[in-house]
Design a protein around this nucleic acid. Structure first.
Lengths: 341, 341
DNA sequence: ATGAAAGCGCTAACAA
DNA sequence: TTGTTAGCGCTTTCAT
């Protein structure tokens, strides 16, 4: 008992050939209404469902998308994963998760594992890529898209927020708010997101004839961010920034806690804080964080599009660097510019 | 170019049979050192790796575990998923994600999809089970374990915190804190976690000759929780609870925001708040939430154990309801009992 | 429109 | 220890 039902058993019950059964379950195959009916009936009776793995073997399409992720602690990612998985599900694909954390330290190792599953595509979220990996996939003919990371090297598709523009927007907002000592808490310096946000931020500051007042590295992690905040703010009032742009919300929330509860500073009274991402807690009244929103819905849609386009027509698809514009969500953690409506 | 390397090609290059190659990649098969060496060399040269799907087909073991989740918004789950995935990876398994949300509304539908992938096991997180599903899996011989949900019906393995004991512990703490008007904000009433937490809570209250002062339903969602908080607390001081147990942290944080920022109440000055889970934000200084911790590490370990035990020896494995004790993490959101150290 | 037959890449008897 | 041989459950020519 409990044995798997095969198409052959259905065929026998329906009194048709095994390939007829296969055709009934293959969209766009030619079967007569009568045959289809007989097969459907037999299949229902037996509770038959095609074996995806067998289908994958012969067709070469597994309908599995590999997802590499390393940083679920940052709420931006669970949210994105949920959307990604949902959208792919709607297209008949499913997500096989690979954690690129401690255990299987290096990404290359993880990637080999993914390839073993004959995935139809790969999404790498918040993970850097070596050109080695890239060529490995290229040669395997597997599309890969970088989510929330970009790569200088060409030939690899990526979907990000327009981090440069976002950084600019934050700087402009802070400058307009009348701040004169604007500091920056950086994310992990290996990340393109960090780099681009900072570059845009600095560029706009420069245009306003300002520069970054001080800088510390938070590495995208809570504890490092706290240390960075102490580093920049635990000093006399006249040597203290009056505003800080933190490279993502996950850090910005921790920074706000340090400012308020450790250093007794008022936000935005003494210091304005702006983050990046707009994760759910940023909207909580206790933080009410002004932040540059990443439009994760759009990002996910673009990711899935890129993947499916390639799968459906590998030759007609060229790698693109997709950068989505993100709006500044103005809340209460930063002083408003004069006359801001 | 870019074609997949098969064991046959390796065999030819190594000058051995195809099955020799297979054996080299099968742990515990008998191969001579010489053959192994030849094969290894050829495999490296060609960049060969076994096709997991083909292996799955013939062996009947896919090394894929299906995971059903519905509620990534609650930080407890991303954390758990990360740990689960990591631990399974260490055992050579990988997680195929299925969202049980809006899109594929009903769990039964999702489950059929999972079965199509010939998974070796299923973890259902925060998802209720119909007996229908259960028997479907039983008959397919696929182990299924409920994570953070339990089921009255027998024959199904579940891993939870001891929610009843947890609920008791919270009540005892609140009573010891001198509270006399203790209320409860419930989670989704279909959830076993909700039921058990409330039952334990009420039992301990009763033993202290108290009862629940008032009750509202938060459904485990932020917005409903906010409404529930208003419902219970937006009233004259003498008809207001002096403490509230909220069925999980995700809601408790939202409740604290309403109390403080909408109703102008002080926590714990006017109201003590206790949650359940101990998600990361509970420890943030802005909330400093007293809460009953779910030991997700242990829960995940037990889940993986249960799964692997069954896979390795289906006949010797009996369904168990595993309930893990969780400690009360005392922070600042609730008044401390007299003389509490 | 349908059936027969040939594999997809691999593991697992079975011989040798 | 090794090679040979059968499949795993399915899709896909190729005839009919």
């Amino acid at each position: 008992m409990g044995d798997k039902i095969t198409s052959l058993q259905v065929a026998e019950l329906a009194g048709v050939s095994q390939s007829a059964v296969s055709r009934v379950f293959t969209p766009g195959a030619s079967v007569s209404a009568k045959t289809r009916e007989k097969v459907r009936k037999a299949a229902n009776e037996l509770g038959y469902r095609p074996n995806v793995l067998a289908r994958a073997m012969v067709s070469g399409k597994s309908r599995i998308i590999g997802l590499v992720v390393a940083y679920l602690e940052n709420q931006f990612y669970p949210e994105a994963i949920e959307k990604l998985s949902n959208l792919l599900q709607e297209h008949g694909y499913h997500v096989l998760i690979f954690m690129a954390t401690k255990t299987s330290g290096n990404v290359d190792e993880v990637l080999e594992e993914i390839l073993d599953y004959q995935v139809d595509g790969i999404v790498m979220a918040s993970v850097a890529m070596t050109s080695n990996i890239s060529s490995r996939c290229q040669q395997a003919g597997i599309p890969i898209v970088l989510f929330n990371r970009s790569q200088d090297m060409d030939g690899i598709t990526s979907v990000t927020t327009d981090n440069y523009a976002g950084g600019r927007r934050v700087a402009e907002f802070l400058v307009a708010g009348g701040h004169r000592k604007i500091s920056y808490i950086a994310g992990w310096e290996g990340a393109s997101t960090q780099r681009d946000r900072e570059a845009g931020f600095r560029a706009a500051l420069q245009e306003a004839h300002q520069q970054v007042y001080s800088r510390a590295i938070g590495d995208f992690h809570t504890e490092s961010a706290r240390a960075a905040a102490r580093d920049l703010f635990d000093r006399p009032a006249d040597d203290r920034p009056d505003a800080v742009f933190v490279a993502n919300d996950h850090m910005a929330l921790a920074v706000m806690d340090v400012l308020r509860f450790e250093l007794g500073l008022s936000v935005p009274g003494d210091v304005s804080v702006v983050g990046f991402d707009d994760v759910p807690p940023a909207a909580w009244p206790a933080y009410d964080l002004t932040t540059l929103r990443q439009r994760s819905n759009l990002m996910v849609e673009e990711t899935v599009n890129a993947l499916l386009n390639y799968i459906n027509d590998p030759d007609a698809t060229v790698p693109r660097k997709i950068a989505i514009d993100g709006p500044l969500i103005v809340r209460g953690s930063a002083k408003l510019p004069e006359g801001y409506e």
